[in-house]
Amino acid sequence: MTSLQANRIALPTGVTLNVQTGGTRDGEPIILLHGFPESHRTWRAVAPDLARDHFVVAPDQRGFAGSDKPEGVDAYRTETILADLIALADTLGVDRFTLVGHDWGGAIAWLAALRHPDRIARLVIANSPHPLIFQKSLIEDADQRAASQYIRAFRDPGMERAIAAMGIETFYEKTFGAHTDLTRIPAEERQAYLDQWSAPGALTAMLNWYRASEIVVPAIGEAAGAPAWTLAPFPHLTMPVLVIWGLRDKALLPVQLESLHELVDDLALAATPDAGHFIPWEHPAFVIAAIRDFIAETA
C-alpha cells in the first residue's frame, strides 16, 4: 500500500478542492470521483493500492467534506462540476487519464467521457447509471421509479429541517442502514461522516447536487412522458469502459445494466452479488482487481 497526502488546490472555476494525491508521477494517472454523501474516503482501500504504480488523484468534489461549499443550487449544475474535473486535471498537469466514478462521481464521469473523449483514456463506473438509461428507466420501469423516490425527498427544500429534526446520527443510520451492514463501517469512518455532515452548509451543499440535476423523477403512479433529449440520437462512447456493479444495490436496479452495450462500443462488466451500492468500500478487493485487470487488458 502507498500513502497519499491531502492538499487544497485552488481551481480557475472559483472553488478550492481538498484533493488526495499520491503514487508515482511516472505512472498512468487515475482520477477517482466519489458520490453522495461521501468524500475521497470512498476510495480509502482502493486508492493506496492503485498508487503503487499509478499517479492517483481523489478530490472531495465541490460541496463535500474538505472542499469549498458555494451557495446556491446553480453552483452544483453538472456542467459546472465537470468543469472542476477538467480544471483539476489541467492544474495537476494531467492530460489523458483513467477516470473512475462512483454514484454521483459516476454521473460526472459519464458526462466527462461524452464531453471530453480526448481526455479520458479509459472510463470505470461503479454503481452509477448511464444518464440515458437512468432517465428512461425512471419513466418506464415502475420498480426503478419507486427505488428513486429518495431523489424527490432530497430535492425538497425542507429536507435540511427534516434532518435536523431527526438528528444527524439518525440520518447516518437511514442513509447507510438501508444499503449496507452498518458494522462494516469502522467507528472512525462513522465519525468522519458525522463530522463532515455537521459542518456549516454541508448538508445543503450535498443536497444541492440533487436539486441542480435535470433528471426527471416522477412520483409513483404519475403519468410522465420521456424528456425530449431521450428521444434523440445519443452519442456512443468509444473508449474502453468498465462497469463495476454491486448487485445488492437497492437504489439502482439491474435494469441499469441491460442496454449498456447499445451505448458503449467497448464494454466490460464486473458484477458481484457480494456488495451493494457502496461497493468501493464494501468490497474493495473486487474493485481493485477489476480495475487492474481492465487496465492490463486495455494497455
Rank of each mutant, 00 (worst) to 15 (best):
A226L: 15
L263G: 00
S3C: 04
D49M: 04
I9H: 04
Q196Y: 13
Q5V: 06
A113V: 03
A202I: 04
T230Q: 10
P12Q: 09
D84Y: 09
G106V: 04
F97D: 01
H54G: 01
A268T: 14
D84W: 09
I215K: 03
E214V: 12
V73A: 13
W281H: 12
L32K: 02
P157T: 08
R115L: 12
V255L: 10
A51M: 06
A126E: 12
D90K: 07
Q135A: 10
L242E: 01
G23L: 08
D118C: 06
D293M: 12
H116Q: 10
A83V: 08
P29H: 06
H102N: 08
L194P: 10
G27V: 03
G35Q: 08
W110D: 05
A228Q: 11
I279Y: 05
A113Q: 09
T13S: 08
A112K: 07
T230V: 13
R161H: 10
H102R: 10
R292E: 08
I30D: 00
A89C: 05
P117F: 00
L11W: 04
A299T: 14
G22P: 07
H34L: 00
E258P: 01
D118I: 08
M159A: 12
D103T: 01
T78I: 15
R52S: 00
P280I: 08
A178C: 04
F234I: 09
A65W: 14
F154G: 11
H102W: 09
N208P: 09
A10D: 14
Q135G: 02
G63H: 14
D103W: 00
G221F: 00
D118E: 14
A162H: 12
P284A: 00
E160Y: 07
